[in-house]
Design a binder for these strands. Structure first.
Length: 440
RNA sequence: GGCGCGGUGGCGGAGUGGCUACGCAGCGGCCUGCAAAGCCGUGUAGACCGGUUCGAUUCCGGUCCGCGCCUCCA
């Protein structure tokens, strides 16, 4: 079995043939740090984490880069709105993002470059694009000249005419062509900015990914990932900038995009209030259950994310955690690897896991670990969750009291204690003369 | 208007031109003081209409419905 991935460039599932089999290079668009990550942001984080884990076992070396966008007009808007310092907003939000990513059991990328640390690289790329006739300066802006490159639109399937016809936004007067996009724009007032040959200003959104992927992975690399909504204009523009600047035939060989997410049957929107942040979901559910809920749907499939879905995922984890008590991970089952090699088919991999539980808990544990699941101790899983307004000593005392009642055959008293504990989210299980407990 | 994605059993969700997906929930039973957990058994599909085929959930065409993108949203 070999790895195959759906490539947006060809709209087909293709066998993955690395540029350099000794070193796989992957870039994934990371968060813009102006607000808490929502569950839609979490999907690519988890999906590409699985791909990263898979690549690491298939190839000797993998470099995974995920950027942090910390210069953006949404950040500026947030600062203006709350009066907070831009630096504070981006640092606090980035830290929160890391905490969320960790709670979802994701591995850290090898590099996590920030846009503001790479302004120099971006300015070099702009100058290069101007020199090569792919960009022009107008009214303090530098714009990419989409007419200068006839392959523009290949990724998204849009041609320039369609883009112009569909434009919902008034075309800025300084653009030669409605499809042209900004590489550098002037900053004023409290907006962050840097000095440049084209005046005090800041980079356009797409440029950072072109500059940073080049720095950490080179002008051509294997995989570029992100959400489907980034295909146009973000990734289309990245390709234009990178390929025109580096004069290459490709930027990334495979473009992998995850599907959109709805919440509770409706498209996520702040006005509807159905906007789950990872942070708030973590107050209610273990991160591992959220991770499994995300992986239960194939990454390209549209997904309706619901709390009921997380609750179901948690039940599956409960069952597995019971099965793996005392197990030690064996080699990763081939079924799991094979499913993932088939365009990251996580639902199939999970089904394979379900098939393993009965006979081979060691294999179940290994397969689950591979997916970033079942990494806790079963006891920690069952006892650590919950609100914990009842400490373990108090629970043990009540169990002892109940044991006495049971010994006295006072089952009414015994059941009263069990019901009281259940009310607090603690479930008792009597087995082989021993009473154990877990949090619901 | 243009481009694209999807519609599978009560729910979630894959593969597959013919054979049980899988999970959650339900139901019956075993076990248990009663539960819980576990075990055994069990029902329920492929939006709609045509076509291709010996045979279609799977391929082709159409209809209906849902969703996304079309200049900065994963």
């Amino acid at each position: 079995m070999t790895l195959s991935l759906h490539n947006t460039l060809t709209r087909k599932k293709q066998t993955f043939t690395p540029l350099d089999a000794e070193h796989i290079r992957m870039y994934v668009c990371g968060p813009t740090v102006y607000d808490l990550a929502h569950i839609g942001n979490a999907r690519p984080v988890v999906v590409f984490d699985v791909l990263y884990r898979l690549l690491k076992v298939l190839y000797p070396k993998v470099t995974y880069v995920r950027n942090i966008t910390d210069v953006d007009d949404k950040i500026n808007a947030r600062a203006a709105e709350t009066g907070e310092d831009i630096r504070t907003i981006t640092q606090v939000t980035a830290a929160q993002f890391h905490a969320d990513a960790k709670a979802l059991n994701t591995l850290d990328p090898d590099f996590e470059p920030r846009a503001t640390d790479h302004i120099g690289e971006m300015k070099i790329m702009i100058a290069d694009l101007i020199a090569k006739g792919h960009a022009y300066v107008k009214e303090g802006h530098v714009l990419f000249d989409t007419n200068s490159w006839d392959e523009y639109g290949l990724l998204s399937g849009h041609n320039r005419d369609e883009i112009i016809a569909g434009a919902r936004v008034e075309v800025a007067p300084y653009k030669k062509d409605a499809a042209d996009f900004v590489l550098w724009k002037p900053s004023s007032g409290g907006e962050p900015g840097w000095d440049s040959d084209w005046g005090f200003g800041r980079p356009g959104w797409h440029l950072e990914c072109s500059a940073m992927s080049n720095k950490y992975l080179g002008p051509e690399f294997d995989i570029h990932g992100g959400g489907q909504d980034l295909i146009f204009p973000h990734h289309e523009n990245e390709i234009a900038q990178s390929r025109c600047s580096h004069q290459t035939d490709i930027m990334a060989k495979y473009w992998v995009h995850n599907g959109y997410l709805m919440a509770e049957g409706e498209k996520m929107s702040k006005s509807l209030g159905n906007f789950y942040t990872v942070h708030e979901l973590l107050e209610e559910f273990p991160g591992e259950a959220i991770r499994l809920a995300l992986l239960k749907t194939h990454y390209r499939q549209p997904m309706d994310f619901t709390k009921a879905g997380i609750a179901e995922a948690k039940k599956e984890l409960d069952r597995w955690y019971r099965m793996i008590d005392g197990a030690s991970a064996s080699e990763t089952p081939t079924d799991v690897i094979a499913a993932l090699e088939d365009d990251i088919n996580t639902p199939q991999a999970i089904a394979a896991l379900h098939g393993l539980g009965d006979g081979s808990p060691d294999a179940l544990l290994a397969g689950a670990n591979f997916l970033g699941l079942l990494e806790q101790d079963p006891e920690q899983w069952f006892r650590g969750a919950g609100d914990g307004d009842l400490d373990e000593a108090a629970i043990d005392a009540l169990i002892a009291e109940r044991d006495q009642a049971r010994a006295d055959k006072d089952f009414a008293a015994s059941d009263r204690i069990r019901d009281a504990l259940l009310e607090k989210g603690v479930v008792l299980e009597d087995s082989s003369g021993q009473t154990t407990w877990r949090r619901k």
